[in-house]
Computed example of a mutant assay.
Amino acid sequence: MIRHLVLFKLDEGVDREEPRVAEGVAAFRALGGQIPELRFWECAWNITDRPIAYDFAINSAVEDTDALKRYLEHPAHQAGVALWREFATWVIADYEY
């Protein structure tokens, strides 16, 4: 199994209550039911307010590297990424467990 972690940081001046942010969150929340390769899916806002904290997180799992590739290329995932690209940056980690 591969764990796929993503941490998002909203751009300076972007508020999580903005409609475009809400649209991005909704797009990512829906992915768990849209992409068959996902074996585990959760995403949520960070509940702490620390200077080093990121704002939003995805924690997911797929079976193997082929499944990860299919997930990353899936049209629903790409559509969500396009939304987030407009107002945030992110870091990722993929590891086997």
Rank of each mutant, 00 (worst) to 15 (best):
Met1Arg: 05
Met1Gly: 03
Ile2Tyr: 15
Ile2Lys: 13
Arg3Leu: 06
Arg3Asp: 04
His4Phe: 13
His4Ser: 12
Leu5Pro: 11
Leu5Ala: 11
Leu5Met: 14
Val6Tyr: 08
Lys9Asp: 01
Leu10Glu: 00
Leu10Phe: 01
Asp11Thr: 04
Gly13Ala: 02
Gly13Ile: 08
Gly13Trp: 07
Gly13Pro: 01
Val14Lys: 02
Asp15Trp: 02
Arg16Asp: 01
Glu17Thr: 09
Glu17Ala: 01
Arg20Trp: 05
Arg20Ala: 01
Arg20His: 04
Arg20Gln: 03
Arg20Phe: 04
Val21Asn: 01
Ala22Asp: 05
Val25Cys: 07
Val25Pro: 07
Val25Lys: 13
Ala26Asn: 04
Ala26Thr: 07
Ala26Glu: 06
Ala27Thr: 07
Phe28Cys: 03
Phe28Ser: 03
Phe28Ile: 07
Phe28Tyr: 10
Ala30Met: 08
Ala30Gln: 07
Leu31Arg: 05
Leu31Asn: 07
Leu31Lys: 08
Gly32Leu: 08
Gly33Ala: 10
Gly33Arg: 12
Gln34Gly: 09
Ile35Lys: 11
Ile35Ser: 09
Pro36Leu: 14
Glu37Val: 15
Leu38Asn: 12
Phe40Val: 05
Trp41Asn: 06
Glu42Cys: 02
Cys43Trp: 13
Cys43Ala: 12
Ala44Gly: 12
Ala44Cys: 10
Trp45Leu: 05
Trp45Thr: 06
Trp45Glu: 04
Asn46Met: 10
Asn46Thr: 13
Ile47Thr: 07
Thr48Ile: 11
Asp49Cys: 04
Pro51Cys: 01
Tyr54Gln: 05
Tyr54Cys: 01
Tyr54Phe: 09
Tyr54Ile: 06
Asp55Thr: 08
Asp55Trp: 10
Asp55His: 12
Asp55Ile: 10
Phe56Thr: 03
Phe56Tyr: 12
Phe56Asn: 04
Ile58Cys: 10
Asn59Tyr: 12
Asn59Gln: 10
Val62Glu: 12
Val62Pro: 06
Thr65Gly: 12
Thr65Met: 14
Ala67His: 15
Ala67Cys: 15
Ala67Val: 15
Leu68Ala: 14
Lys69Ala: 13
Tyr71Cys: 11
Tyr71Asp: 12
Leu72Pro: 09
Glu73Ala: 11
Pro75Thr: 09
Pro75Phe: 10
Pro75Val: 11
His77Asp: 09
Gln78Gly: 01
Gln78Ser: 04
Gln78Ile: 11
Gln78Cys: 06
Ala79Thr: 07
Ala79Ile: 09
Ala79Trp: 09
Gly80Arg: 09
Gly80Met: 09
Leu83Thr: 03
Trp84Asp: 00
Arg85Gly: 00
Arg85Trp: 03
Arg85Asp: 01
Glu86Tyr: 08
Glu86Leu: 08
Glu86Trp: 08
Glu86Gly: 02
Phe87Gln: 03
Ala88Lys: 00
Ala88Glu: 01
Ala88Ile: 01
Thr89Lys: 02
Thr89Trp: 01
Trp90Glu: 02
Trp90Thr: 00
Trp90Pro: 00
Val91Asn: 01
Ile92Cys: 05
Ile92Ser: 06
Ala93Arg: 14
Asp94Ala: 14
Asp94Val: 15
Tyr95Ile: 11
Tyr95Trp: 14
Tyr95Met: 10
Glu96Lys: 14
Tyr97Lys: 04
